[in-house]
Design a protein around this nucleic acid. Structure first.
Length: 552
RNA sequence: GCACCCGUAGCUCAGCUGGAUAGAGCGUUGGCUUGCGGAGCCAAAGGUCGUAGGUUCAAAUCCUGCCGGGUGUACCA
């Protein structure tokens, strides 16, 4: 409907003034109309005419259109369009148009041997939801997580593991019970970090461990004692990640890439482009783009080891080998924003076509309000696995499963409702709120509609002459859904979808208060609206990855 | 020093490719029994949009300075 009106305005403007435009339609306050455009004010200058005069001319033409009931001019020259109720009602029942394209999205990215913290939780939800919106619009999406399974942090962990085992005895790992493996590994990392900072001898041994890990990958060593410890613990780590992903109900990754797979191609890419893209400086290989305002970054350090920069070029290369994509989104913390620009700059210099497909999306950190309640429940620990159980405690529900669906809905919605980029505050008490602009509010607004639909036989869609105000408001809001989905991918703005679904639910709740559906004379008109509403809200929640319970 | 991000109601945030009285939620105060689930609905109070200029018919939105907070700035990721 939006596009159809927009096209009509475009044609009218062309006919009247012989000017090519792409009119933007906005959704004004309902008192003004269903659609509005400021095209007259934009044309005023170039045409040298009074904006209201232009608006009047356009309005006159638009009034002759079938679907349009009323066109008014307001303020400095806004053109407000109101549709006939019959046309509006009919336009409610349209499908979301699908487009084609393929997206590779890289997110979550926890490092092996370390534990997942709230920040990973947050980014995993953002990535999963964004992927779902693309999928909803018809894109093929590849989900990838890329984590460090080599590097100094692994050296620290390996050192501490061996230390704890009393030597390189892989068989002793079997003595560690399955349910404590993840925490045991997390402790090893902490101990390793501490030793690295405080103990000179340990520091040297850790550096050796780090090198040995790289070597075992180079030699594809699966059998030495050291290697067996490494592979076993890496697997423990991955098992813990997957268990977590399952618990928060996100779609599984199509590919989990370790840095061990990318440092070799990364090194090769950098070396192949030495002199062309990269230069040597103080024994390191760098990219200096300071004239374009970017930082100088080291891609291969003076010890000949690849830095994350090289590994990141490696992963771009590896993904391009395995997946064919039109666009690649990589999510990182916002502190890596400027860093990412350098990597993309390098990629564009090496391969402009592949470089142009890169897009970086940075998210802020999760902060805990004043944290009083939060800290008493979770302590200073911000392990991701503690969040859901803690949230569940605050939810009253008939069953465990329902409690989980609601808690998950509350958490995810809290993560998704703010725009991506800024820090977000996560106060467990507020975040798990079930009132107002919250996940459970949306879930409840869905459950109410489901409950109505269980009590009626589905009416076939009727033509209608007149809509009452609450019906009309619901109809108008429903027609916006396709635009909002598109807007959400265009701006990576999941909060737009959240805000829309919240508004939709609010409008439905008002409708619910004022309009009876079951056994009402207007049931034939209202039932299709409720059906469409239920489908839209359910679809929207599923697109965000928020559970849609049948009852609460 | 330079670069990037942020500063909107008591709190948490929308709005920022300039447009019609700056919007939500929480919190505060006061209402809603005969109708499909009150995790709901209605209403009130609450804002010099950090600050000072500039551009414009029109600025929370664009430009510049300043103040305040955060992050990054060569061998970490």
């Amino acid at each position: 409907m939006n596009e159809s009106i927009s096209r009509q305005v475009q044609q009218v403007v062309h006919r009247l003034f012989n000017v090519e435009t792409t009119p933007v339609l906005t959704r004004p306050d309902p008192q003004f109309g269903d659609f509005a455009t400021n095209i007259a004010m934009q044309l005023a200058k170039s045409l040298g005419k009074n904006p209201r005069e232009i608006a009047e001319a356009i309005a006159t033409e638009l009034r002759s259109q079938d679907a349009i009931n009323e066109v008014s001019i307001a303020g400095p020259g806004f053109i407000n369009v109101r549709l006939h109720d019959s046309a509006l009602y009919a336009s409610v029942f349209t499908e979301v148009p699908k487009k084609q394209g393929s997206l590779l999205i890289e997110y979550s990215c926890p490092n092996a041997f370390k534990s997942i913290h709230v920040g990973h939780f947050y980014q995993t939800i953002l990535g999963d939801s964004l992927a779902r919106v693309y999928e909803r619009l018809g894109w093929t999406v590849y989900r990838v997580t890329f984590g460090g399974d080599v590097g100094r942090h692994v050296g620290m962990s390996m050192w501490s593991i061996i230390n704890e085992l009393g030597g390189e005895y892989p068989d002793k790992l079997a003595e560690i019970p399955e349910d404590v493996r993840a925490t045991w590994l997390a402790e090893r990392y902490v101990m390793g970090t501490k030793a690295f900072e405080e103990d000179q001898q340990a520091k040297e041994e850790i550096t050796q461990c780090n090198k040995r890990v790289y070597e075992l990958h180079n030699e594809n060593d699966k059998t030495s004692d050291f290697a067996r410890i490494y592979w076993t613990c890496r697997q423990w780590s991955y098992d813990a990640f997957n268990q977590f992903y399952e618990s928060i109900q996100v779609k599984p990754f199509d590919r989990s890439i370790g840095e061990s797979e990318t440092f070799q191609p990364g090194l090769k890419i950098v070396r192949d482009n030495l002199g062309k893209v990269f230069t040597e400086s103080d024994g390191a290989v760098i990219l200096s783009e300071e004239k374009s305002g970017l930082h100088t970054r080291v891609f291969i350090n003076s010890g000949g080891l690849p830095t994350y920069e090289a590994k990141d070029l490696g992963v771009i290369w590896l993904e391009a080998q395995e997946f064919e994509y039109d666009k690649r989104i990589i999510m990182t913390g916002s502190e890596q924003k400027q860093y990412m620009q350098v990597v993309f700059s390098a990629q564009s210099l090496i391969d402009p076509v592949l470089g142009a497909k890169q897009e970086s999306l940075t998210n802020g950190t999760v902060k805990f309000g004043d944290g009083k309640k939060m800290s008493s429940r979770l302590g200073n620990v911000t392990r991701a696995v503690d969040v859901l159980p803690s949230a569940k405690e605050a939810i009253k529900a008939k069953s465990q499963e329902l409690q989980e669906q609601i808690a998950l809905g509350a958490i995810k919605y809290t993560f998704l409702k703010s725009s991506i980029g800024g820090d977000i505050s996560f106060d467990l008490d507020q975040s798990v709120s079930t009132e107002g602009n919250s996940g459970p509010y949306l879930q409840y607004a869905l459950v109410r509609a489901k409950s109505i639909l269980r009590k009626v036989s589905v009416a076939t869609q009727q033509s209608v002459d007149h809509l009452e105000q609450p019906e009309r408001a619901l109809a108008v809001c429903l027609t916006r859904y396709p635009e909002v989905l598109q807007q959400s991918v265009d701006g990576s703005s999941l909060h737009d979808l959240c805000a829309y679904l919240y508004e939709l639910s609010q409008i439905f709740n008002r409708f619910y208060e004022q309009c009876k559906v079951v056994d009402d004379p207007r049931a034939d008109i209202r039932i299709p609206l409720v059906v469409q509403y239920e489908q839209t809200l359910r679809d929207g929640l599923q697109t965000l990855g928020i559970p849609t319970p049948e009852e609460m």
